[in-house]
């Protein structure tokens, strides 16, 4: 069977299209690459959607945590503490348990025990908490002058936040936020490994990698392939975030821009 045929059969296997049965003997490198790559669709899906949603919740959390009102500050602090303070492993476990019991309350919760929604929610909360903390740190280090200048221009409330505080916050937080994004994509590998069941052998990249490792009893082929895909993904993320970083800083003089890049990277 040619490699093209394999790609046609298994390229979208993780979504349930193509051959129903996974290859079971005489595994080729092509099958390794195709199926593990097919699984990456899920990793990208989880990462992108959680990151996009988490971004907004993170902003809200950061503002709430920096707020003077205790009823806003306390819940945000606790939310961030719990999600940052416990391993994702345990969060998946409790979430699955919770969704299962909700399911018996009302059928509306049925899809929650499936990974595409249940795990997504956990990852969404998780990244919101981590990014929220990063944004909070950035919010506190916004230069006083910027805010005073906005005041002097008669800006207040929403316009001041949207046009002055928020962009500056993003600019300061961006290097650390890039790291958070990378970590989130790596964390997606845990979804089927420990948290949620895989339905009809539709899983993420790690699921297929361990399928091969289990069938061939040789961990030295599938896992490095998985690693290769993730390095590729990391490079894409770094490039994408670097592009945004340049846009965010395009108004700054060149030497100050360089300084930005060398800020110590806060990682998750």
């Amino acid at each position: 069977m040619s490699c093209l045929q394999t790609i046609q059969d298994y390229g979208l296997r993780s979504l349930g299209f193509g051959e129903r049965l996974l290859p079971r003997s005489d595994f080729t490198l092509c099958e390794h690459f195709t199926l593990i790559g097919s699984g990456m669709i899920w990793n990208v899906y989880f990462g992108v959607v959680a990151l996009a949603g988490g971004f907004f919740l993170a902003t809200a959390l950061a503002v709430a945590k920096a707020s003077n009102a205790w009823w806003l500050r306390k819940p945000a602090e606790w939310f961030i503490f719990i999600f940052r303070g416990s391993p994702l492993f345990i969060q998946f476990f409790f979430a699955y348990f919770l969704f299962l019991s909700l399911k018996s309350v009302h059928p509306i919760f049925d899809p929650f025990t499936a990974a595409w929604l249940g795990a997504l929610i956990v990852l969404f909360f998780n990244t919101a908490a981590y990014s929220g903390e990063i944004f909070y740190g950035a919010l506190r280090s916004i230069p006083k002058g910027d805010v005073e200048a906005a005041d002097a221009y008669g800006m207040a409330g929403w316009p001041r936040f949207r046009r002055i505080i928020w962009p500056t916050m993003l600019r300061l937080a961006w290097p650390a936020y890039t790291n958070e994004a990378i970590f989130l994509f790596h964390a997606t590998a845990l979804v089927f490994f420990s948290g949620f069941p895989a339905w009809q052998q539709r899983g993420d990249a790690l699921y297929y990698a361990s399928y091969f490792a289990d069938k061939t009893f040789n961990p030295f082929v599938p896992y490095p392939i998985l690693a290769f895909y993730f390095i590729l993904l990391t490079l894409v993320i770094t490039a994408g975030f670097g592009f945004v970083n340049r846009r965010l800083n395009r108004h700054l003089p060149r030497d100050q821009r360089r300084k930005m890049r060398f800020r110590p990277n806060l990682i998750r």
């Binding site: 964390a187 590998a189 845990l190 790690l206 490792a213 961990p219 490095p224 998985l226 690693a227």
Partner: peptide
């Protein structure tokens, strides 16, 4: 730095 940071720790541990 680049290679090890680019790979999820779990994938690394498995082999």
């Amino acid at each position: 730095i680049a290679v090890v940071r680019g790979v999820p720790d779990i994938a690394f541990f498995l082999f």
